[in-house]
C-alpha cells in the first residue's frame, strides 16, 4: 500500500514535471525561432553599413578582384584624409554643420513661441493657425520648388545659404510644433497662474517660467531637426549651384558621380557623411526614438 502510494505519487510528479519540461521546451523553441528571425532582421539592417565601412578601406584591386565579403587586407585609412581634402568634402562638411545649427536654432525658437501662444494663450484663431502648421506635414515640398526657385531668384538668394536655411526652417516647423504640442499641453495651468499673481508679464512667464520647463523636449526636437537638416537634399540641389555653398549630401552625390570607379574614395566619403548622425545616435538614441514616434503620430 505504502509502496503503491509512493509509486503513484512518483508517477504523478513525473508526468507533471514531464509536461513542464515539454511546455518549456516548446516555448523555448518558439522563442528561439523568434530570436533567430529578429537577429536576421538586425543583420539585414546593419550589415550593408558594415559592408560600406569595409569597402571604404579597400583598394580598387581588392574591390574588383576579390570577394565583396572579404576583409580589407591592408586597411586603406588614407582614403579618408584623401577625400577630406580633395573634392571639397571638408568645405561641404562645415557648410552642412552651420546650416544645420542655424536652422535648428531658428526652428526651435519660432516653434516654441508659436506652441506657447497656441496652447497657453486665449485667442480666436488659435485652432485655425495650428491647423495651418499641422497640414504642412502633408504638403509635398516638390510642389513649392518652382515658385520658391523663382522667388529666391528675384530676391538674389540663389547660391545664398539663406534660401536653404529659410526653407529648412519652414518645412521643419510642423513636425517640431507637433512634438512640442503634447509637452506644452501637459504643463499645469497653476504655473502660469502663480506667475500672473506675482505680476509677471506674459513675456516673463514664457521666457522665465515655461520655456525652461521644456528643455527636455527641446533637446528631442533639436536632435530630430538636426537629422532632417543634415540629410536634406532637394533644396540645396535646387537653390545652390556653386561649390562654395553646397552641403555634404549634394557634394557627396556630385563627388560620387565624378569618381564612379574609385570605390574606396566613394566609401570613405559616404562614411564621413553618415558618421555624425551615427555618433549622435549612439549618444542620444532614446531621444531620437521618442522624437520620431511623437513627431509622426498625434492628433
Amino acid at each position: 500500500m505504502n509502496i503503491m502510494n509512493e509509486f503513484a505519487a512518483h508517477k504523478r510528479s513525473g508526468t507533471i514535471s514531464d509536461t513542464r519540461v515539454k511546455a518549456s521546451f516548446g516555448s523555448r523553441l518558439g522563442f528561439g525561432v523568434l530570436y533567430l528571425i529578429l537577429g536576421i532582421l538586425a543583420v539585414i539592417q546593419i550589415y550593408p553599413l558594415f559592408w560600406l565601412f569595409l569597402f571604404s578601406l579597400k583598394t580598387n584591386q581588392e574591390v574588383f578582384g576579390m570577394s565583396p565579403f572579404a576583409l580589407p587586407q591592408h586597411p586603406q585609412w588614407a582614403n579618408y584624409p584623401k577625400v577630406w581634402s580633395q573634392g571639397h568634402i571638408n568645405l561641404y562638411f562645415f557648410n552642412s554643420v552651420w546650416y544645420t545649427v542655424v536652422a535648428v536654432l531658428l526652428t526651435i525658437i519660432l516653434a516654441s513661441f508659436v506652441t506657447f501662444a497656441i496652447t497657453r494663450m486665449n485667442w480666436k484663431l488659435s485652432r485655425f493657425v495650428l491647423g495651418l502648421f499641422i497640414v504642412g506635414l502633408m504638403i509635398p515640398l516638390h510642389s513649392t520648388l518652382i515658385p520658391l526657385f523663382n522667388f529666391f531668384k528675384h530676391m538674389h538668394l540663389i547660391n545664398n545659404p539663406l534660401s536653404v536655411i529659410l526653407s529648412y526652417t519652414a518645412f521643419n516647423l510642423p513636425v517640431t510644433i507637433m512634438i512640442l504640442l503634447g509637452f506644452y499641453q501637459a504643463i499645469p495651468r497653476e504655473i502660469e497662474e502663480a506667475g500672473v499673481m506675482d505680476g509677471c508679464s506674459v513675456h516673463r512667464i514664457f521666457l522665465r517660467i515655461v520655456l525652461p520647463l521644456t528643455t527636455p523636449v527641446l533637446a528631442t526636437t533639436a536632435i530630430i531637426n538636426m537629422i532632417y537638416n543634415w540629410n536634406e537634399f532637394v533644396f540645396v540641389n535646387t537653390f545652390i549651384s556653386s561649390d562654395r555653398w553646397k552641403t555634404l549630401t549634394v557634394g557627396v552625390n556630385n563627388f560620387v558621380g565624378q569618381y564612379l570607379t574609385d570605390w574606396g574614395a566613394i566609401g570613405a566619403t559616404l562614411m564621413i557623411s553618415i558618421l555624425p548622425i551615427l555618433i549622435a545616435f549612439l549618444l542620444l538614441s532614446n531621444r531620437i526614438v521618442e522624437g520620431l514616434a511623437a513627431g509622426s503620430v498625434k492628433g
Binding site: Q45, V252, I274, F281
Partner: peptide, 9 residues
Amino acid sequence: IPMLLSSVA
C-alpha cells in the same frame, strides 16, 4: 539605424 541616414547615402 537606416532611417537616420540620408537618402543620398
